[in-house]
Structures are given as C-alpha cells and as structure tokens.
Design a protein around this nucleic acid. Structure first.
Length: 469
DNA sequence: ATGTAC
C-alpha cells in the first residue's frame, strides 16, 4: 500500500523522541516516500533507532548514535524484581510486561498489580510501584490526584424515589462535564486552594491558575462521573457511626483537569531530559527526590491533588445544599498519586496509578460501573500488595472496541434493568465494557474488607465526543 | 486523562 504521509506522531510511536533528530527523521522520511511505501520507511527508520540498520541514512544514524553517547543511558536490572499480582486470570499480558519493565528500574523496590490492571502509558493502570528516592511522573499518571468522593446523607432511600426528578435536575444544574470546559466568570466557585502558596512556586505553575479557577468544581470527561445512589449498610459500622440501613449518597469521580494534565506533561518532559532510559522504558523517566526538579514536581503534584479534592468539595457542597439533609460521613481517596510511605522497613515513594490506598483501616471507594454496584471498603494493610487495592472494575474492552461491539439498545436495556437514569456518556462507558466488579472484589479479599454497597441510580458523565456545556 | 502536537 502506498502511503504518502508520515507524521511526527508516527515517528514518535516508532520510538523517536521530540527534538532535532525527529525533525531530521521527518525530512528523511519525506525523501524516502518518493520511492517506497510508508510501512517500509517506518521500518527503516525504526531500524536506525535500534542500531540494526546497515544501509545508508548515515547522517541520521550518526545523530542517533551521538545522542546515545551524550545521553549516558541508565542501565536497567538484568533480571526484573518479582511483583505481586492479584486476579491474574483477568489481567492482560501488556500490563504484566509494563510492570516487569518498571521492576527493572534501578530505583524500584517493590511492585504489585491490582485485579483491575490494564495496559497504560509507562506504568500500567492498576499498577503500584515503590521506589527509593525517586518519583516517576508517568507512574502517577496524567490526571494527577484523580479521586473518588462519597457523601452519605441522613436521607432514607424512599426520599430518593419520591423526589427523583429533583435529584436529577439539581445534578444537571450543579455539574459541568467535557474536556476543556469550565464555568463562566459569574458562575465560578471560590475555594481556599486558590490561595495555596504553591501556585507561586514557579512561573510555569502560576500560569496554570486562571484556568484552574475556571475549572474549579468541574468533572471533565472520560470515565469521570457524578452520581446519586443508595448506599446499603448490612450492619452498623462503629467507626463511621452509621446504623444498618439504606441512605442516599453522592459519589463523584474526577481529577485535576487541565492543570494536572499540564503539570504531568511538563515534568514528564523534564524527567525524560534528565533521566535517560533505554527506549522501551523511556516513559518511566524519574526525578531524584532530592533534586530541584524532583522537589518541584512533588509540590506541584500535591497542589494538583489539593485542587482535585477542591473540585469534589464544591460539587458535594452544591448538591448537599440543593437537596438538604445532614452529612453522616464523607469518604475520599485518590488513585493517581505518589506517597512517602514505609515498605519493608524503608522509606519509599509509593506510586499508585489507578490503585486505591488500602493501608490498615484506611477507607476507600471502589466503583463498579454505571449500573454495577460500588463498594465502600476498609483496607487490610497487606504489605505484599503495597497497602493497595483496585480503583474500580477495570476495562474489559477498549473504548473503540466497546463502541463497535455494543449497541444503544443493549445499553438502554441494561440501564432500565438496573433502574439507572443516565445523563450523557457514550457506548465506551457502557457497563459491558467493564469487568465484573464482583470478580474483581473476590480477587482482592485479602486486600480490603467491604463495609457497604453503593447502587448508582442517577449517573451523569460527559456526552459522547465530550461536547458538553 | 487532556481542548491539540516538532
């Protein structure tokens, strides 16, 4: 097949990094495309990069070799350290392979895969990695501080059914979804996080503040949601001081919006410049915790986490006020973050990318899907799992596969069957696109105890194609 | 995940 266009993106997925060499490779590609097809050109250029090309293209080859010499590439462990896997039967090979690469980093101390793990960028989603004195921006992920927040109200379940329309109306009125979207100036919320000193740390960070202000209290896109549901305690919980029974609850899932994404991008770029890793591990570039860049990232990451928390606060405050009722308990936990923790008697940096903290007694929320139940859990503090659990059911189908395999009729049928009212969302978020949450919970019985079960009833997500108000 | 890329 004759392809007459090769883009920077094509070359980057072939392993070329942004910069001079990419520019050179692009112009070489343009020349070669006059005589051969795209696939051949890509494979030639990939061979140059892997140092197995023995033909012409000497200029490009010299540049690659020179770059490698200057780069002084970090040597990985010959044999990656072992890591724990929970629910292995339902975890794809790609996620395991990515975890093995992470375990070969010289800074890695321990790793674990949660039962909802699947392939990601750098570290897999559902991957937990403990390192010594190093933080990996892509070990945290793009949506820094992404989290779940659950408010349990002293409102009986019957009130929900009797006022269904009002719950729906207020949910729509007080939430904003869609990539890039924020609030209009006069609608903007206020929050103490905007006064956080970390915003003045560097010029890069301070320039993120305006958009952060406009997006405060918004939810974004992808798998993010705001939902009303009924939480059921099959027995009294002493710690939360909640009696056996069913209560109205609000569950939200979202992160640090554009701000966190920009911080992730900025420090990943910086890490890749400072920390040269072999080609297959470049996305695991790390920053020394004692370096200026490492400390900056740490503060910026924490700021993004506080910001994500503020976004949930605002949503919960608005909806609590709209519906009335007393708050019985609030539980919140983040799953794209790094923490300083003790592991094996040593202080380590624990990266949880799509994994829930589950130290002994630590509460967390593990949602299923828009129709499947979610679970309020209490961690058991299992060291082998690095005090972690899954952050959800995990995807069964990729977004593209879900869109082509699931019909609208199937989606409405399952919503109806589960009495769920849905606002927004495309087929890529259909319940069938996710693993069975009960299987996932079974695979992590050693990691968490179930405290209560949450059934979604009115769910809002970003519209198809993220075109929302 | 994100309003966008050397």
């Amino acid at each position: 097949m004759k392809t007459n266009k090769i883009t920077a993106k094509d070359l980057m997925s072939a392993g070329y990094k942004e910069g001079k060499i990419l520019g050179k490779a692009l112009s070489v590609a343009e020349q070669l495309l006059k005589d051969m097809d795209g696939d051949t050109v890509i494979s030639m250029l990939t061979a140059v990069l892997d140092d197995v090309y023995d033909g012409e293209l000497s200029e490009l080859r010299d540049m690659v070799l020179e770059d490698r010499k200057v780069a002084d590439i970090i040597v990985l462990k010959e044999q990656p350290d072992k890591f724990a896997i929970y629910g292995e039967d339902n975890i794809d090979a790609g996620a395991k392979a990515q975890m093995a690469i992470a375990m070969a980093l010289p800074v890695s101390r321990a790793g674990a895969l949660m039962p909802d793990a699947h392939q990601g960028y750098g570290l897999p989603i559902g991957g937990v990695l403990a390192t010594h004195n190093a933080v990996i921006p892509y070990g945290v992920g793009v949506d820094i501080g992404c989290r779940m927040a659950l408010s349990i109200f002293d409102i009986p379940a019957i009130h929900f059914d009797e006022n269904h329309d009002k719950y729906k109306r207020e949910l729509i009125a007080h939430t904003r979804f869609g990539a890039g979207h924020g609030f209009l100036k006069k609608e903007r919320a206020q929050h103490a996080v905007l006064d956080n000193d970390a915003f003045n740390m560097t010029q890069f960070i301070s320039q993120l503040k305006d958009k952060a202000y406009s997006q405060l209290g918004t939810s974004g896109g992808g798998n993010h949601f705001v939902e009303w549901g009924i939480i059921e305690f099959s027995e009294r919980d002493e710690v939360l001081n909640i009696d056996k029974g069913s209560y109205v609850a609000l569950l939200t899932h979202s992160g640090s919006r554009g701000m966190g994404a920009q911080i992730a991008g900025h420090y990943t770029r910086l890490a890749k410049e400072i920390c040269k890793l072999p080609q297959h591990a470049v996305n695991l570039a790390y920053l020394d915790m004692h370096s200026e860049a490492g400390q900056e990232y740490w503060l910026a990451m924490n700021l993004a986490g506080d910001y994500a928390s503020a976004c949930h606060d605002i949503i919960h405050q608005k909806l609590a006020k709209a519906m009335g009722g007393t708050l019985l308990a609030k539980v919140e936990n983040h799953h794209n973050f790094a923490w300083k923790e003790k592991w094996g008697g040593e202080e380590v940096i624990v990266h949880r990318k799509g994994a829930t903290p589950a130290g002994k007694g630590v509460m967390g929320i593990i949602p299923g899907s828009m129709t499947a139940p979610g679970f309020l859990v209490r961690g058991k503090g299992l060291e082998n799992a690095i005090n972690s659990a899954s952050h959800g059911a995990g995807r069964l189908m990729s977004r593209t596969k879900a869109i082509s395999n699931i019909t609208k009729q199937e989606m409405s049928a399952i919503l109806k069957e589960n009495k769920v009212t849905l606002i927004g969302a495309g087929l890529d978020e259909a319940p069938m696109a996710y693993k069975d949450i009960n299987v996932v919970m079974d695979a992590q019985q050693e990691l968490v105890d179930i405290v209560a079960k949450f059934q979604p009833r009115i769910v809002r997500m970003a519209d198809d194609g993220s075109k929302e108000d």
